[in-house]
C-alpha cells in the first residue's frame, strides 16, 4: 500500500501523451462524438478506458493513433505509437509467416535495409518464448494456421516490441476465450511494466480494469466523467466501479425518456 502511493507520487514524471480539448464529429451525425477531451499520460502509466458503447472510446483511440483527425484540439505524442486492434485479421497478415509478420512490425520505426528479413529470426524466437505457450514452434508457419487467440498474442507481442513507447490497445482481448483472455492480459500488463510503456487500453472487463490499470477513466457521451488514479484507484472495488458505470447508464436512459 505504502509502496503504491509512493510510486504514484514519483512516477509519470515525463509526459508522453498530452491531449488537449479534443473535439470530433462525423459528417451527418448531429451529436459530437468527442466534446472536449483532455488527458495527459506519463511515462510508464497504464491507463484503462471504460465506457458504454458509443461513448467515444474507439474514436479517441483512433485520433491518438493518427487514423482520424480531430476537428479541434491538440495532441502531443512524445514517443512512437504502436497499437493492437480488436480484429486480429486487420492487425496481422494471415498468409505471411509468423516471422514475416514479426519482421514487418520490427521495421516499423527502422530504416528498411537491402538484406533478408530472416535476420529477425533469433529476435522473433526469443520474444515468442516469453509468452510461454510454445509460439516459437510456428515461426515459419503462416500466421493464419494459428488459432485466433495465438494470433492475437502474436499481434500484441509485435506491437509491444516494435519500438513504440506509447501502446494503444483497443479491446484487444475481447474476441478470445476466457482462458486466452487472461493469458494475453497478464502478458500485456507484464510487458508494459517491464518495458516501461505508456499504455492506453479500452476494455469492457471491469475486473481487468481494476486489476491492471494504474489509472481508470470513464467516457460518457464524448466526455471524461471519471478519472481515478493513485490511492483512490487502489481503494476502488469492482462494486464501486460498476455502480459508477451504471449511474451514467441510468442517467442516459432517463434523459432518453425525457427526450421522448
Amino acid at each position: 500500500m505504502g509502496l503504491t502511493s509512493l510510486k504514484t507520487l514519483r512516477l509519470w514524471g515525463d509526459v508522453m501523451l498530452q491531449i488537449k480539448n479534443i473535439v470530433k464529429s462525423f459528417p451527418g451525425v448531429f451529436e459530437k462524438v468527442l466534446k472536449g477531451v483532455d488527458l495527459s499520460l506519463g511515462k510508464g502509466e497504464f491507463c484503462v478506458v471504460i465506457g458504454a458503447n458509443g461513448s467515444g472510446k474507439s474514436t479517441l483511440m483512433k485520433i491518438i493513433g493518427g487514423e482520424y483527425t480531430a476537428d479541434s484540439g491538440s495532441i502531443t505524442r512524445s514517443g512512437l505509437v504502436s497499437q493492437v486492434v480488436q480484429d486480429v485479421s486487420k492487425g496481422t497478415i494471415p498468409t505471411l509467416t509468423l516471422l514475416e509478420n514479426f519482421a514487418l512490425s520490427q521495421m516499423r520505426y527502422k530504416k528498411p535495409r537491402f538484406s533478408s528479413y530472416k535476420r529477425y529470426k533469433n529476435e522473433a524466437v526469443r520474444i515468442m518464448k516469453t509468452a510461454g505457450i510454445g509460439l516459437e514452434k510456428y515461426i515459419n508457419q503462416p500466421l493464419g494456421s494459428l488459432s485466433g487467440g495465438q494470433r492475437q498474442i502474436v499481434a500484441t507481442m509485435m506491437a509491444i516490441n516494435s519500438g513504440g513507447q506509447i501502446l494503444l490497445l483497443d479491446e484487444h482481448t475481447s474476441a478470445l476465450d476466457p482462458k486466452m483472455q487472461s493469458t494475453l492480459m497478464k502478458y500485456t500488463a507484464k510487458s508494459i511494466k517491464e518495458k516501461n510503456l505508456t499504455a492506453l487500453m479500452i476494455t469492457h472487463k471491469m475486473d481487468d480494469a481494476i486489476k491492471y490499470g494504474d489509472r481508470l477513466i470513464m467516457l460518457n457521451k464524448g466526455r471524461i466523467v471519471m478519472d481515478i488514479k493513485g490511492q483512490e484507484k487502489t481503494k476502488l472495488s469492482i462494486q464501486d466501479l460498476l455502480e459508477k458505470f451504471h449511474k451514467f447508464e441510468d442517467q442516459d436512459i432517463l434523459e432518453n425518456k425525457n427526450d421522448n
Binding site: 492487425g91 497478415i93 505471411l96 519482421a103 514487418l104 528498411p112 535495409r113 537491402f114 533478408s116 528479413y117
Partner: peptide
Amino acid sequence: ADFGLRFRAVGLNPDFAKKQ
C-alpha cells in the same frame, strides 16, 4: 529484403501495412 516484405504487405493487407 525489408523493402520486398513491405512491398508484399501492401497487397496483402494495406491497412496493416500503413500501420507498420
